[in-house]
Nucleic acid binder design. Structure first.
Length: 104
DNA sequence: GCAGTGACTAGTA
DNA sequence: ATACTAGCCACTG
């Protein structure tokens, strides 16, 4: 069922994000050993099956938001999940990266 | 094997 | 502050 090794690596990295923290796509790509492949991270998560236990909601873009124009449902879901983990969102519904961004 | 696509990013206007 | 552009390269058809 592994479609590709790259996806697997990305999933592993996303799963490593501590609870209550978030990371950017570029950061995930870098930690996964794929520097500069931020888009691949997004692509991998787009293909992520619902059954997966990967905390995709902890992954946000550089603005602290997800672009999810093609799936606004997931956007609202993400907000609920982040809130349930104690992550604060500003009035623009963006994650406060300065405070919750994961730091290795 | 080639062409289109993209949950991105950083730069420019 | 927002809007648009180019660069990036693995994945899909």
């Amino acid at each position: 069922m592994r479609k590709s090794r790259t996806y697997f690596i990305i999933y592993e990295t996303v799963s490593a994000i501590p609870k209550g923290k978030v990371a950017t796509y570029g950061q995930i790509a870098r930690l996964a050993g794929l520097p500069g492949h931020a888009r691949l991270v997004g692509y991998a998560l787009h293909n992520l099956p619902d059954a997966s236990k990967v905390p995709w909601h902890r992954v946000v873009n550089s603005k602290g938001r997800i672009s999810l124009d093609s799936d606004p449902l997931a956007g609202s879901l993400q907000r609920a999940l982040l809130r349930s983990e104690g992550i604060a969102l500003d009035r623009d519904e963006a994650v406060v990266l300065g405070k919750f961004q994961w730091r290795k």
